[in-house]
Design a protein around this nucleic acid. Structure first.
Lengths: 202, 202, 202, 202
DNA sequence: TATGAATGAGCATTCATTCAT
DNA sequence: TATGAATGAATGCTCATTCAT
């Protein structure tokens, strides 16, 4: 079902655990982690509130599993989408298209993953922050490659990298919205926007 | 004391009320509305937990006052910063510079204002959403003006407007971060990024 | 305005104090002492919640003033209505008529006076219980007189006394109710009922 | 365990629920519903304050269960005690004896049932008021039967019915009191009093 | 007297979690 | 695994009362 590796020590592959994660994502995205009760998550699955505990030791562990899985999947997908031997422009288009599409398709999960990390334990936060840095690094390497070979005109590699990632991340906040309701529309527009930010010829 | 108008029926100008809003902004930004307790807000001011209630009828009303004031201030500041009789490029630079700087300077308030609106009553949410639409409209008018006079090359007015606003909004999520710790640095970079997104000459 | 003496050390005759008692009676009768807030009483008079305190030291003192005044008025009225030199039958009719009419007319006050005494301090309770005993004693003396002169046929003086008082007291619970909405109708029926309970010829 | 039917959708038959009702009856009777805390009820059972909530959704629901059960039991017992094929006098004696004995024996529950209904939701109040009307109707039918066959001399069927019920209801207010401490003594006196109120020969 | 703000104690209720089954 | 009942610790909020004005 999934072609990428997700650390099974963190993210249980059992079916009940996966259903719990899915229900929790919806609830956390709608109301925030702090305002979501374990009973509400259980109610979405017509389970008792206690049924979560054989699968996750606490509500925070459930959030961690979601956040860890979410980041890991994004990272894997971006890596898979990156045509490393092509030109920086081609790579940037491919990666940003995948990223934006992902944030739109999985906007509920993305919201949790982007905005609810403050509720994690310091240790869990560090684990997730590591993956998050890897995502930024992936984009930065492309921007750097373009700056190096002159195909991009960037005043500031870090600023432009930050902006490109920022643009993609924020998709989960507003999508769906305005006339954008199809992830593919976003996936078409965003590579062009990234190219402009990078100051590439096209 | 304040140079812009904020609706005093919503946002009390009393000193105690203002201190409560400031303390709540910090707490909500750090932990989210749902995970913040009224006791925690009071503790930041060394007040009793009950002292909030003569000023705000509920925690939600406090959030509303913050969100309403925040949006209204942003809107007023953007309007004040917009040199309406200049070229679209000049206007875009000015407005985006102000917007980005604002989101950086007041990143705690901005986080509350951008990410905690789901906790509002439907009625309060609508009131805030109205102001939010006005902000987008202000940016869109500039993008449209540039598209109309040919100074911008936009494939899609709505998409580009959304992206520019999105870029500015997301500043509050990551700022301060990376090597960016001064709002003025952001205020210098972001107009250039917006100009690129708009496909303007300079 | 009133022709009977009420202890002014307990029941202030100031106008504001009297208005507070009247508002409190309504509130206590509707919701019970425990469920009534000082704010609710004040709200009925469009006063601030603090405005009660110059007049009554506490909510309990307000209840005491009401209960004391209520009992004292009842006692005075019954004494005034009792034609002590007439036959027991005539006296019983007169006293029960007055008692029943009173409980009907002032059913809100009577409810407070009859059912909310548990909230009084022990000392205050004792003061009110003394007046309450005087009311029963007044009725008992009439029943005893009728039993002594053979005009009443009572199996048990205490039981019949208790029943007559009980019947009158309970008026405040149900009045107005059924087709009884005029205190005078009650005042006509109840003397006949008391006469029957006393086993008098008529 | 119980020989009469009580609606189990309203009044849970679980043991813990029944113990809660019993403890709440004592507390409400002593202090009134409004002045009784959920903690006090729990403390009487040496339970935690939260232990009530799996059984009753709120303090008001607990009151409703008590009031509904109380009225239903009274109604069933009166019906069971009514020898419908005997003379009105015999029936009145039997029903009033049962009623008075009941109000004396269960005076705590009766107090709650008679005096605390104002705290019910309108909907719950209506449900209880329906049962209450059935009790009055039962007594009225006997009084009417006696008036119809000439065995009672009633000036006013409604008034006499009201008085008989009133006399019985009020038992819970004063019992135990005076020299009356045994429900059976009340059960002996009250039928005679009712007979007198009804103007019956015996 | 009267008030608005403040407070300590307390309220009904909910929470995440545990545990016996 | 899953559950219903239970619990200790909150949670948002209210209460009677006080106090400076």
């Amino acid at each position: 079902m999934k072609s990428v590796d997700v650390d099974e020590n963190v993210v249980s592959s059992s079916k009940a655990a996966a259903r719990l994660r899915a229900a929790a994502v919806e609830a956390f995205a709608e109301n925030g982690f702090g305002a979501t009760t374990t009973r509400e998550i259980a109610a979405r699955l017509e389970m008792s509130a206690a049924a979560m505990y054989p699968h996750y030791k606490s509500k925070e562990e459930l959030l961690f599993a979601i956040a860890y899985e979410g980041h890991q999947l994004t990272l894997e997908w971006l890596r898979a989408a990156d045509p490393v031997h092509e030109t920086p422009s081609t790579r940037l288009r491919a990666v940003v298209g995948e990223f934006a599409k992902n944030q739109a398709t999985h906007h509920a999960r993305a919201r949790v993953v982007e905005y609810e990390l403050a509720a994690l334990t310091p240790e869990h936060f560090r684990a997730v922050a590591g993956l998050r840095r890897d995502v930024v690094r992936l984009v930065r390497q492309i921007v750097e490659a373009g700056a190096a070979d002159g195909s991009f005109a960037v005043p500031d590699v870090e600023g432009v990298t930050l902006a490109i990632v920022s643009l993609c991340v924020d998709v989960c906040r507003w999508f769906p919205g305005g006339s954008y309701t199809d992830p593919d529309t976003v996936a078409k527009l965003y590579p062009e926007l990234a190219i402009r930010l990078a100051g590439a010829q096209s």
